[in-house]
């Protein structure tokens, strides 16, 4: 009994929107990054699911690369948060608001 593809898509959409919810409401920059990670992983779920349904390994390899890139992005993100803390004294994203009108 196979799992219908719609449920995998639904799972992926749910994880993505949970991550999006976190991006929109979280004030702490580290939680912001975590939410971004969630969104990336939602995309990975999608890739792997369709790799199964199309009997093609490309999706899974691509998901591996995606994970690698997510890791790279987190590394740079942590560096940016460090510099943000140095300049503004707090990692609250709603405090760093100098590039405004």
């Amino acid at each position: 009994m196979a799992v219908l593809p719609e449920y995998y898509l639904l799972l992926s959409a749910a994880v993505f929107c949970i991550g999006l919810f976190g991006v929109l409401t979280r004030r702490n920059a580290l939680f912001f990054l975590m939410s971004v990670e969630l969104m990336l992983n939602a995309g990975n779920i999608n890739l792997v699911a369709f790799s199964l349904y199309y009997s093609n390994l490309t999706g899974q390899v691509f998901a591996l690369f995606g994970m690698a890139l997510a890791a790279a992005e987190v590394a740079v993100g942590i560096g940016i948060i460090l510099v943000l803390y140095r300049n503004f004294g707090d990692i609250d994203v709603t405090e760093a608001v100098t590039m405004r009108w």
Binding site: A2, E6, C17, Y53, S55
Partner: peptide, 27 residues
Amino acid sequence: AAIALFALMAAVFLSADTATLVESWGF
């Protein structure tokens, strides 16, 4: 906004027809 996006995507995915996809799957 995120909840709205989820609702929209759920509506689109659940109404999709994936019959051809399920026929031949797996490794």
